[in-house]
Design a protein around this nucleic acid. Sequence first.
RNA 1: GCCGAGAUGGCGGAACUGGCAUACGCGUCGGUCUCAAAAACCGAUGAUCGCAAGGUCAUGUGGGUUCAAUUCCCACUCUCGGCACCA
Length: 818
Amino acid sequence: MKEKLYPFEDIEKKWQAYWLGTGLFHMDPKSRRDKYYCLVMFPYPSGKLHVGHGRNYIIGDAIARYKIMKGYNVLAPMGWDAFGLPAENAAIKGGLHPKESTLNNITAMKSQLSRWGVGYDWTREVTSCLPDYYKWTQWIFLKLFKKGLAYRKKAAVNWCPSCNTVLANEQVVNNLCERCDSRVVDKDLEQWFFKITDYAQQILDDLTGLKSWPERVKTMQANWIGKSEGVDIDFPVEGEDFNITCFTTRVDTIFGATYMVIAPEHPDVPRLIKNSAGEQDILKFINSAKAQSRMSRFSDESEKKGIFTGRYVINPVNKNRIPLWIANYVFMEYGTGAVMAVPAHDQRDFDFAKKYHLDVRVVIDDPRAPSAAQPGMNVAYIEDGVMINSGQFNTLPNKSAAGKIAGWMEVEGIGRRSVHFKLRDWLISRQRYWGAPIPIVYCDKCGVVAVPEEDLPVLLPDKVDFKPHGKSPLSGVEDFVNTKCPKCGKKALRETDTMDTFVDSSWYFLRYLSPKNGDSAFDKDIVDKWLPVDQYIGGVEHAILHLLYSRFITKVLADLGFVGFKEPFRALFTQGMIIKDGAKMSKSKGNVVSPDELIIKYGADTVRLYTLFIGPPEKDAEWNDRAVEGAYRFLGRLWKLTSRVNDTERGKNGPGPGDRILERKMHQTIKKVTRDIEVDFKFNTAISAVMELVNRVYTAVENGDTYYAKEAVTNTVLLLSPFVPHVAEELWQRLGNRPSIFSQPWPVYSESKAREESLVLPVMVNGKLRAKIEVDDTASEEQVKAAALADSKVNGYIKSACVKKVIVVAKKLVNIVI
RNA sequence: GCCGAGAUGGCGGAACUGGCAUACGCGUCGGUCUCAAAAACCGAUGAUCGCAAGGUCAUGUGGGUUCAAUUCCCACUCUCGGCACCA
């Protein structure tokens, strides 16, 4: 073991205890200072944190400490997203009970967090698997249920016939069960949904107001919601008295529809094919499409396949008789589950038409090459153009025709404008043990009955057989299942599904404000004061689901009057992942780097500094164990430098030129670090700026320019304190100041002292760097130009050539074009 | 496949609003110290041609705009994240 560069072990212990004692991270509810709610996404207690997780908490901690120094009343809470699949899977394999393993993991991770020096208000800790938390998750379910926003319908799950159990998507690999390699099939079960689609428009619209969210996250959410405006068109079924309605965004192509395709699950399928000649073949096709399961639609080999029903529908605009097909590429979940196919103007339809020899009818003509888009074409014409073969709409540009056709259809009663979303309702049922029980009772007489609020929580029983037996684990617990109907008092059965863990995590940020409140989920007055969260920090992998669900639940609670705001997170920062050996750090890949050994070897501050220095926090970054040493060396250098400047005095003669250089650098550094933190949390460049300053102080001290040395080091320590709090606190004290450094205001710079007096400008000839000239800061454009042209080196390049143009960019460069 | 992001030395990365490409750190090489090594400290370090002065080439690939492009535009390749039951 090599010698330590500084006694980080003692220092870190000492100051961690000190902060705990002084309550540095305790939010003061009575404070008059401005509030700042700094929230990091609470972790799933998976066992041990690795340095990849650490990035999230270190960034959050740096921001919290910075804001404390900026004078805010900071709330930085922490909790545990403690329900979930891994704990249950471990129990099935014969491990500990999920409750036990989860609580063990929490203890372990909590101690890891404190060793990292990340501070939280632990008096506000929440744990989603404990009854005092999930009671209120159940309460939220009841609120949605009573509002008509929770409902039951059949939906498919991944089913492994061999294991006799439901599988998570993650447990399905290439359509096979990860445990036994059996082919996974879809199985329809009656399940609970939250009607998030009712809020689709609002969730979409309110994205606009989220000014401090990353653009990419907003785009992803908008695309996920997937609003499209178009027309629902009714196609009468030949020989029947009902219509099939299809949704199209391209109503301008309606005259070109040559066939219709519906989803295998379309509700009209049975009556359409009943007793038909091809019934058996069609059923076979449908079964194989369903057996393909929802999982395989992402796989590339999934070919577009279809089968003719033998039936025809009538295109309502021109009474054309068009064949009705069933195909695996139409989904019941989107639109109406029926698509009018226009092969001439849609590539997917075109490919399908070619494959099955269906008609292609051109209705939009390419204006640049009229009549070029004709049969015989080998790709669909998807550009704009002029309407042809479209009755009274011929000769119109297709864009304006679309509106006219829609209007005409509404008048004729054959179609109507409509809006569809890709967003589907949120399936919250899980046939699992380790989740919050859904507070519902089924009574033969009264039907589906909500558990009364006063009977909450519906406790999760401890004694459960985890081994799969074809049903939800809770259904095997007699005491749990058998209950009395809250309405009529007769025998009734409990719902045995539990809730998706995303429900738990969609409201935890409200619970932090009154974590021990036994009377309500949260207190409206306090929550209204502290929300929305000022800064939310977490991984970009949550860009869609978690952030969408949280926004939805918040809006529901707002509509019910429980909260006075519609968006939970004012600002969002999504940090990148830590990569090791080219892959995301994860236990299963075996490439995790544990912080524990690194902290023992170099101290927490080194790990923190390296984590922040590794790269721009919003981007992925490759972890390098060797490079951690660089951060350690830097802290060692700073330690030595501090004792070196500690007893330097300001000379009587005042600052010399060398001192002024250091003074300027010091002000420039304060400026840059502050800016880097305020704008986008660019900790990596902030730290490199401080490193430059430290290098400069060394040079200055070597040269005997010590006038500003101590001041510069003092500011260095202040600037670094959010990043390396322990060593900063220690050096702050050693520099003769009273703790805590976090009760100090953030340093300020002077613009005039940061300004350079003279500039070195590059001079380019024909875009190539040829010379550098030194000019005064205040030099005019003409003066700069003259100086450049007078330069001997420059003249060597110009020689006798004629100077065409001289471009002077103020304070940047000179370019001479010859 | 669809949606989103990214690609800069041997490596992590920097570059404000189109203006000196490679800051800062790692690694490597050379030196100081040492009996020696480690640590620490000092110096060099994009590639290439050249004794040198200096030249040429370089920001995933191919085009374009511009006095000037890592930055803007078009086309492409590869990598990563998400795709609704991992969280």
